[in-house]
Design a protein around this nucleic acid. Sequence first.
DNA 1: TTTGGGACCGAACGATCGTTAGGGTGATGG
DNA 2: CCATCACCCTAACGATCGTTCGGTCCCAAA
Lengths: 164, 164
Amino acid sequence: MGDLAQALGVQKGSLYAHIESKADLLWEVAREGAEAFHAALDEVPDDGPVVERIRAALRGHLRVVAQQLDVATVFIREWRYLEGERRDTFIAERRRYEERFRALFREGRERGELRTDLDDGAAALLALSSVNWAYTWLRRDAGTDSLADRFTALLLDGMRGYSS
Amino acid sequence: MGDLAQALGVQKGSLYAHIESKADLLWEVAREGAEAFHAALDEVPDDGPVVERIRAALRGHLRVVAQQLDVATVFIREWRYLEGERRDTFIAERRRYEERFRALFREGRERGELRTDLDDGAAALLALSSVNWAYTWLRRDAGTDSLADRFTALLLDGMRGYSS
DNA sequence: TTTGGGACCGAACGATCGTTAGGGTGATGG
DNA sequence: CCATCACCCTAACGATCGTTCGGTCCCAAA
């Protein structure tokens, strides 16, 4: 709160003419984060090659991380400090996001665009881990699309030479 | 400190008969974490198929995460609260760990066991991201080896069907 | 012109937390 | 037997932090 007030050029107490509590602020940022990531997924077309949609989803996620790093940090890490009902509803929203991701891989498998023995749970976990971890090192001005493409290529084609 | 004292069945102040400061504790755990992860990497043989060594490295990392979750959490996340010189030396140790990981992928490419156009930096980043993120969801009793193997399979062979 | 209200200040409150101080106990070893 | 020392307690200190409160200023609506 002190830092926030200082960044606004205002005394600590003056903040409370605009907000109710610190917890409210965290909740607002968490909601904003959920909205941003879901919005990025909304931009992914719901038909066309699954591979391209996965690439678009990773691009979108990384873009949110890079361009709204603070919001993303709350969505990814700081949400833990939410309390009570807000915490529960946030977790549900977060699970929904992961589920939407997983559905991509499931559909890819079912359509035969991905390997038929694909473990879509592990696949979604792997993909989401890679982009979720990005908030720890990603710079705001990084070329996120090309990075997402490199991740996509690695995830889809693997690191072995056989498939090239 | 209060929680720690309570867990030990002791008053807060009594802790200081054994330690110097809270910062010292964090430093100790951070060092323990670095030691554990490096030790896990030491168990990986330095010859043989690179693919198997990568699998072993991921297994080792996940095992440390699962079995020493608190230590791993400090190594992965809480080290940020280290200060001064300790912070710097820790970061160096952490970078060295990442570099050892990356060397695996580089060697795999150079030996022709991995694709010749492999971006070993991105590959190491992807692999480390996947296992680093695990501390957020991994349960202590999880079958980490099989999980590491699933990750290894996905990373090496990819999610596309072509290579199977 | 008066009134109401939003924005802000300055100060303080109350809680938490890491740490210190002073004193007590009991076991150990010279 | 006595001194030492490790260990622990209670109490308090000082700093930080989120929040409250009374008061001032100023703009806009009545």
